[in-house]
Design a protein around this nucleic acid. Structure first.
Lengths: 137, 137
DNA sequence: CTCAAATACCACTTCGGTGTAGTATTTGCA
DNA sequence: TGCAAATACTACACCGAAGTGGTATTTGAG
């Protein structure tokens, strides 16, 4: 019942970048500020570029910046790009054919909790995050 | 954002046993009914015995039955025994020192969602599950 | 034009969750 | 009392996520 490490990193990185959403950030700076392994962060940045959240500038004085408005990037988009939405949309017991008509043992209690989970991910944008007080990145 | 496979199995098994909570269940029967690998289920049953949820009867005509009242077994207890409570109690971004005073970027939105998650696990007992209509185990 | 400093790419290692195999042990009944 | 049928235990295989290493490529400044 946790996000993958990669999703955790991605959200932390993008939240940090959202503080000043027009700035160009180097991998080196992000590594220092977020305390993530250099190699892992660089690999992840490439993935986030390919997913369309950010764009990379190569060469001297290169780095990364947002490729689109942070008001249009939601936590759900980030998680989906990295580990897939089925990780939190599906049946809590992993049953493919579980539904209201064909409920598993947890279905009844899980429905509302899952709705809350989905809503949290789908309604929280990086812009919203950038407006909250954040002490720990 | 999922339970481990082992937790999924454990909840499914115990939910099935809760239907008739005084009965003795053989591993063979459970494997047939729940469509779980024989070896994996047996190993898990031993773990659930050691965790105190069920007790095992060895020898011919052996099997498993509940070791305590299913009104006192909560989903949170099962998850805790198998993968540990920190898997859903902690910071969504995996930060050890995240708190109200030292919030991460998701803290504000996550607090209420996590509370809902915790409440779902801590307030759902096997007894409650046994009272709901279940079609798919 | 060359070099410094940045990102991109490919391959490999490590680790833990999942799953399998084989053997040992227990116990009731014919 | 021996056997059938059940659980217990130990070790290993597999696989994907996490993490590391080395090299190639890009590009602005002097």
């Amino acid at each position: 019942m946790k996000l993958s490490k990669t999703s955790e990193y991605a959200i932390r990185i993008l939240s940090y970048m959202a503080k000043d959403s027009d700035k160009l950030y180097s991998a080196k700076l992000l590594v220092e500020k977020l305390n993530v392994s250099d190699k892992y962060l660089r690999k992840l940045m490439t993935l986030l570029s390919k997913a369309g959240f950010i764009k990379s500038m190569q060469g001297r004085y290169g780095g990364y910046k947002f490729a689109k408005d942070i008001k249009n990037i939601y936590i759900s988009n980030i998680i989906d790009a990295i580990e897939g939405s089925e990780k939190y949309l599906g049946c809590i017991l992993g049953l493919d054919d579980c539904s209201d008509e064909n409920p598993c043992s947890m279905h009844e209690v899980w429905v509302t909790t899952r709705a809350k989970l989905i809503s949290t991910f789908e309604k929280t944008s990086l812009y919203k995050i950038s407006q909250t007080e954040i002490i720990k990145f």
